[in-house]
Structure formats: C-alpha cells, structure tokens
C-alpha cells in the first residue's frame, strides 16, 4: 500500500493506494491518522478510490481513526468507496457507522454543513 496526503479547507485528505492487509502498510495508515489527530486536525477524509481491497486489519484502522477523532470532537468520512470495500462495509454493518460520499469534494463540503 502507498499513502499520500493533502489538505483542503482545513480538512486532511488521505489517499491510500493498493491493498491493506496488515503489517507495515497498515501501520503507515494508522500512524498518519494519529499524527493528524496529534497535530490538532479534527476533520479527515479518506479517499478509498484507489484501495483494491482490505481485510479486517484495514477496517480496524478506520474504526480506530473514527473513534479517536470523535473522542476529540472530530470526524472521519469516507469518499469514493469502491464495490469491494462497499461490500465489506455492508457485511460488517460498518456502513451504518461511517459517512460515505461519492467524491472527496462532497466529503470536504459536508464538514461545512
């Protein structure tokens, strides 16, 4: 997995690419999310458009980021959720936990509302 990040209107955007299956790749995503939180960033969007698939390790990282942000009055939102990830979120009922948007732009805009 590769990870890039950017910022738009005070919202941090993370863009993982590839597969999230556990080990060093998963640690990179976890650490980046928590680095944002430690630096006072409370609004995060994860662009899932380039994630081929993830297993429960990846889902655990998303949950960890979400709960840590919420505990700090922040929020984590998802964008561009692909078919495979959508299916995993549905199977695990996590679709009811995460707010997901069709585009990063929509997800960023939603923080203003």
């Amino acid at each position: 997995m590769k990870l890039s990040s950017s910022e738009k209107n005070g919202v941090a955007i993370l863009e993982p690419k590839g597969k999230i299956m556990g080990g060093p790749d998963a640690t990179i995503l976890h650490d980046k999310l928590h680095e944002f939180i430690e630096n006072g960033i409370r609004k995060v969007v994860i662009d899932m458009g380039q994630v081929e698939w993830m297993n429960s390790t990846g889902l655990g990282i998303l949950i960890s980021g979400l709960t840590t942000l919420r505990n700090n009055q922040g929020e984590l939102k998802l964008a561009n959720v692909t078919g495979k990830i959508q299916s995993l979120l549905t199977i695990t009922k996590l679709i009811t936990v995460f707010e997901a948007f069709d585009s990063v732009e929509d997800a960023v805009k939603s923080f203003k509302a």
């Binding site: 429960s56 655990g60 949950i63 995993l88 199977i91 936990v97």
Partner: peptide, 15 residues
C-alpha cells in the same frame, strides 16, 4: 460495531 478487532473470521465465513 466500534471494536477495532474481532471481524476476521466473520468476514471469512461471509466470503
């Protein structure tokens, strides 16, 4: 639902 672990075998059984 908000537990970080414990989904692996459930997912495998589903797939």
């Amino acid at each position: 639902l908000l537990r970080e672990v414990g989904r692996g075998i459930f997912i495998v059984n589903s797939l």
